[in-house]
Computed example of a mutant assay.
Amino acid sequence: MSLDNVVEDIRDEARARAEEIREDGEQRAEEIIEEAETDAEELLESRKTDVERQVEQEREQALSSAKLEAKQKRLEARRDVLEDVRGQVEEELAALSGDRRETLTRSLLDEAADEFDDDADVVVYGRESDQSLIEDILEEHDGYEFGGTYECLGGVVVESQQSRVRVNNTFDSVLEGVWEDNLKEVSSRLFDQ
């Protein structure tokens, strides 16, 4: 074998080895590209899922926030209506006159009088415009006198220094009790719950 043949064999072997290395490199490059493309698709799918989840979450939060705001506005509107109704009731109570006002005032005074001893000196306060009515009613009660005005819709505040008892039987206090006891029913009737 000649030297030329040996050189040629080494070159052929080197070319074959180079070709083999090139093919391995190309195959490895294709595998890397496939892996990268698969990773990119998975990442894209993951990001897409994350974005969709975030969008859904934000939509739910916005919807929840809108529902809460609507509920608050509804409650505010109901509170305003209830305040208007109570205001109308107060106006009607303040405007009561004649026999109806006298009957209610007398009844509230008699109820308060039950809290005091018969020999007690009792002072009665009432609405300024009811002074003469209260004084007329007090003529029927020994030891009772009109003590001055009290800011209210009507009725009486009765007190005795001896027993240190004070009874608030004003239209306002009666309305407060009735309002609290019946607020749920009033609300149901007004808003058909």
Rank of each mutant, 00 (worst) to 15 (best):
M1Y: 07
V6P: 01
V7Y: 10
I10A: 09
I10S: 11
R11Y: 07
D12M: 10
D12G: 14
E13W: 15
R15C: 00
A18S: 15
I21K: 15
I21S: 14
R22M: 01
D24K: 14
D24Q: 09
G25E: 12
G25C: 07
Q27Y: 13
A29W: 09
A29R: 11
I32V: 07
E35F: 12
A36Y: 07
E37F: 06
T38Y: 12
A40F: 07
E41M: 15
E42S: 14
D50C: 03
D50N: 15
V51G: 00
Q54N: 12
V55M: 03
Q57F: 07
E58L: 03
Q61N: 11
A62C: 00
A62E: 13
S64Q: 13
S65E: 11
A66D: 08
L68F: 11
E69R: 14
A70D: 14
K73T: 09
K73G: 02
R74Y: 04
E76W: 06
E76V: 08
R79P: 00
E83K: 15
D84N: 08
V85K: 05
G87L: 02
Q88H: 04
E92H: 12
E92Q: 14
L93P: 04
A94E: 14
A95T: 02
L96C: 02
D99G: 12
R101F: 10
L104A: 10
L104Y: 11
S107A: 14
L109P: 01
D110T: 13
E111H: 15
A112F: 00
A113P: 01
D114M: 06
D114L: 12
E115K: 13
E115R: 08
D117C: 00
D117G: 12
D119K: 12
V122W: 00
Y125A: 05
R127K: 13
R127W: 01
E128W: 05
D130Q: 05
S132V: 11
L133I: 02
I134V: 08
I134Y: 05
I137G: 06
L138C: 02
L138F: 06
L138G: 03
E140N: 07
E140I: 05
D142G: 04
D142N: 11
G143D: 06
Y144W: 05
E145C: 06
E145T: 09
F146W: 13
G147F: 02
T149A: 15
T149C: 03
Y150V: 05
Y150F: 12
E151D: 13
L153E: 02
G154K: 09
V156N: 01
E159Q: 11
S160E: 06
S160I: 01
Q161M: 08
S163V: 00
R164M: 13
R164E: 11
V165W: 02
V167Y: 01
T170E: 02
F171M: 06
V174G: 00
V174M: 07
E176V: 07
G177T: 14
G177I: 04
V178W: 14
V178N: 09
W179T: 04
W179I: 06
W179L: 07
E180I: 05
E180R: 13
N182M: 01
L183E: 14
E185W: 10
V186F: 08
S187P: 01
R189G: 06
R189A: 03
D192L: 04
